[in-house]
Every structure is written in C-alpha cells, then in structure tokens.
Design a protein around this nucleic acid. Structure first.
Lengths: 229, 229
DNA sequence: AAGTGGTCTAGACCACATT
DNA sequence: ATGTGGTCTAGACCACTTA
C-alpha cells in the first residue's frame, strides 16, 4: 500500500475528475489521507501542493482542502528565442537590422514602460528570416536611462534579444498576445499583403521595478503558438 | 544563519542573475549549500527544484546542477471561461446558439482529433456577447463516438463549454494561439469588416487518449491575452 | 482554543548518469 | 564504482483561520 507522491497525486486527481469528490467538497485532511495511502504526511502534502498549483483544489489552514468549483485552467507557454525556434525547425536562421535610432519615447510607450520625462530610448527594428523567408519582425525599444550601455551595443550582426540576454537580467515581465493587421510597411518587410492578419507578441521587461525594454514581435501569416497541458 | 526555503531560493536566484554563477557554471551540490545556509538538504532541494522549474537551472543526477545558458522563459496563462471573463469586466453576458448539426468530420478535423472512419461529430456554432456586443465566436465539434449523450444536450440556453464542464472531465488538452482574417460569415457575426485580424484560440481536449472536443474561439478585434511572469 | 496546512529536520535509501 | 539529485519517513514546531 506504500505510495509515492505521484501515485497519490494521480489517485487524488482521478477522484476529483471522476466526481468522487465533487466541486466544492471538502477533501480529507493530510493525516487521514496519509493513513489511507500508507505514506508519510509530507508525501500527501507534496501531492496536494501540486494539485493546488494546477488549480484543481484550494487549500486553507484550518478550513481544509476543497475541490475548486470550476477548475482553473492554466497553460504554460515556452517563450522561444527566435533563433532557436527557427533552428529547431531545421531552417537556416538569418538576422538583419533594419533601423536604429535614438528617440524620445512616444506617449504610449512612456506610459507602458513608466519612463520619466526626458528619458530617451533606443529604437530598433529588425527582421528574423527562416530559410531566407521573413519569419518575425521585431520592433524594440530599450530604455537608455536604465541601460546606457545599449548605445554602444552592436546590433548589426546579432539581434538585441541576444545582446540583452547577455547583458542584463530581468526580474519581471509582462507578455501579451493579440492579432494585428499588417500595415504597408510591415507587409512590405514580411512579404505579405497589407491587411493580412499577423500574430503579435508584446513583452515588457523589468529589473527591480525599472523598465528595461519593450518589444513587439510580429510573426509570419499562419504562425501558431502551441502548448499541451 | 538558519534559512527557510524561500530565502535560499532567492539568494540562489540573486547569485545567478547577478552573475556570481555564470551561465553554464556548475552550482555547488545540495550538501554543501545546506551546510552554507545552515539548513537541511531537503530545504535546499526544494529551493533548487523551484528554480529548475522556473527554468533558471538544469539538474542532473551525478552531473550536478548548472546555470542554464539562456534561461528558459515560460509564461503561464489562465484560460478563462468566457462567461467569467466577460462578467469580470463588469459587462453583461449573453449567449446565443447559431447552428447545430450532426456531420461527418472534415478530413482536417478527423486528423486533428484522431477520429475513426465513420465517427460522427456534433457541430455547433455560437456567439458570446458582452453588453450586447459580439465578444467571442465559438465553433465547436464534439465527438459523438466519445460522447453520445451530447446528442441530447440542450445548447440553446447555455454554451457547450458549460455543458462539457459539468458532463465530462478531461485529462489532456492542446491549445494554440494564432491570428486569422475574418471571412464574410465571421465578419457578419462579429460585427467587423471582412479581412479584419482576429485573435484565435484553438483547443483540443482528450480523455484517456480519446478525443472529446475541438473548439475554435475567435475574439473581437483588438482582443489581448496578457500575463505576467 | 483547536484543527488544519506549511515547513523544517536528520537520516535513510534509491535511481541515475558519469567515470 | 561513485557522486549527485530524487524521494520518503517520522517527528516536530509554527502560522493561519475559523469556531
């Protein structure tokens, strides 16, 4: 009757999914379950901790553990580095810098990155190709207040992403996915028609409360981001 | 010098982010770190397990623990129930069934859901409104081989999602995000222009290796899915 | 006040990958 | 063969929340 924590976890998961314990129900406490499974309380604790993290149950001291009314469904996406993503498909990766300038941030960007008045940003646009075809269009802004050394960065051979990974850590990021229509410029660069639907990833990155960089990544038509859970 | 696992975890995280241990470096083993932090090995283990799960380090028995060359970046998205998503915005939710029929699955669907030849599917289309405006267009296929009781389901008042949540568990799901252009029909239903870029979520759901349902959720123009990590 | 989960400990054994 | 992480155990104490 000895069980390891995976067996306990899966057995508990089954009971929840098959309705032995219905949504809202109180689940037996750790001591009782440990006795039932013939294992230590720590083992049950680990199993239940993972189920809680997966959103199946809710735990409160003294109040006990309950099956969530509607299981929270969360999916985890790996955010790929574009070079690795392309090479993983067996395609040849090529990078090109399109433009580079130092500008005062537009209002929306200053707001989004919480920049102080007068802060400048380095504005870069580049293209990532797979087997010679445009794959991803990157438009990036880097806070020169937070990262003055970006002025000396060479972004002609490798993308700002790889430079940033080497240069700075980040502690916090906000990412969002959406769909946009390609404007004329983007269509020309991506080799698609104006108005084509493109998959857009935006990411803002912070280090100790300070905005580092904001990037908009527009992907080729038909691009999908997939995960299992 | 006693430390709890959070303190250990954060101290190790700092050392990695600040380059004390550079990417590729070997990190001291658990016994040594436990001695350094004045805690039990299990405490170090928990701290490092969480860092590994966060993608900062890689662990192998005998080989030890190394700082990842480029930290894996993963983001977690909550997959909302559309009714809750709309109500959370303080908007009124309304649901409407557009069509319902029983069909032989198109080839792409049979392949995607691994259906047997001859299997039929229930095909539903519906609209979810927020404050009277089209918010999400749902096109759903339910395997009648796996879920014959779907024939008797009433989807006129509540969406198939809520029916499925009550009726069947799932063990496994694949979700993908992309961008599509609205065709004439979709544009008419969503109240947008033909060709507008829409954010699309597709999800296939399985139970014990058997395909249950596949759904395509097209969202209103400008919809974003956001998370922090 | 009391019951529950959260965590730590010290020790043990095992599984695995490298040597 | 050996060193490392992976896990379990039995017991303990603490923290939080409800009654």
């Amino acid at each position: 009757m000895k069980s390891d924590f995976r067996e306990v976890r899966e057995e508990l998961r089954q009971r929840i999914l098959q309705g032995v314990w219905a949504p809202g129900d109180l689940v037996p406490n750790e001591v009782d379950l440990a006795a039932e499974f013939g294992c230590a309380r720590a083992t049950v604790n680990r199993a239940m901790r993972e189920l809680a993290e997966a959103g199946l149950i809710e735990r409160k001291r003294k109040a006990g553990t309950r099956v969530r009314l509607s299981p929270r469904r969360a999916a985890r996406f790996d955010i790929p580095i574009v070079r690795e993503e392309i090479e993983a498909r067996g395609a040849a990766y090529r990078y090109a810098l399109i433009s580079r300038d130092e500008i005062a941030p537009p209002d929306w960007l200053a707001a989004r990155m919480a920049l102080a008045p007068g802060d400048l940003v380095l504005h870069l646009t580049c293209l990532h190709h797979a087997d010679g075809q445009p794959y991803q269009h990157e438009e990036r802004w880097i806070s020169l207040a937070a990262l003055p050394q970006a002025r000396d960065g060479d972004f002609t051979a490798t993308g700002p992403n790889e430079w940033l990974v080497r240069e700075v850590p980040f502690s916090d990021a906000e990412i969002s996915f959406s769909a946009i229509a390609a404007d004329d410029q983007l269509a020309r660069r991506m080799g698609c028609a104006t108005g084509d639907a493109l998959f857009l990833v935006e990411r803002a990155t912070w280090w100790e409360g300070r905005a580092i960089t904001f990037v908009r990544l527009a992907h080729q038509r038909g691009h999908r981001m997939t995960t299992r859970y």
